[in-house]
Amino acid sequence: MMAEIVGAYFTSHVPAIGGAIARGDQHNEYWKPFFDGFPSVRRWLAEVKPDVAVVFSNDHGLNFFLDAMPTFAVGAAKSYANEDEGWGLPVYKSFEGHPALSWHVIEELVGSEFDITTCQKMLVDHAVSIPFELAWPDAAEWPVKIVPIAINTVQFPVPSPKRCLALGRAVGRALRSWQGNERIVVIGTGGLSHQLEGERAGFMNPDYDKFCLDHLAADPDALTQHSVEEVAQLAGTQGIEILNWIAARGALGDVPLAEVTRNYHIPISNTAACTLVLEPA
């Protein structure tokens, strides 16, 4: 009896997506090119039937503040609630946790010398909720339990792409050694290129995004040639959320991967949006 990693689902998590869902704007001219990426994601999830999702994302000031800002935080809670983030999004459904798997991941990470923070209480924000709303729009309750892993993208020093890939690989080792029969989907959220603040607000970089998409599956180490400051220069200050994708890619392990579906569109809100599914070839 061994757990199986069924693949990975990656998507942008822009809060405005939640607004579009709440208004029912999925089919209008502005939003359709983005939402068109999801029927194939949903069919894939229905086929691979995951029981657990290991979710790499970044908190945007719901759970963590500058008083205590963990570089890497792993949830080990029985459940995870979403709450009011202050800008008018609906409060989304809570998530069931998988504490036993969380602690197994934590043991592997600390055993591999990652000095993480563990959280028996953790709120999850739109960076977790919106990808789930997109993937399972009609679910009365989420069909998977989660193990959330938060990467600091708020305050520099931010961990490097290299470190995030290594973190993801260590998470992948933990998942493959888990003595359960769960089917595990890895989720990476955020990005792609965008910048919200300063005179460079509105910056996007489709060339860097293409570089990431061209290498993520077959050669993720290529993405570690840049420091995180260089990623901010290339992808915009919030474009560093690609770290969540890099970590999620690492968790898939160094196996040949096949792309199931991909959708890249500019813009949604201020963001170059992308949705991607990879599975073992």
Binding site: P206, K210, L213, T261, R262, Y264, I266, P267
Partner: peptide, 26 residues
């Protein structure tokens, strides 16, 4: 500002623009 955001669509390499479904699932 919104027009500037939309204008950046022109910079997308056609190879990655839009939806690509590599494996159709019924």
């Amino acid at each position: 500002f919104k027009d500037y955001l939309v204008s950046q669509r022109a910079g997308i390499d056609p190879a990655i623009a839009g939806l690509h479904v590599s494996r159709e699932i019924a």
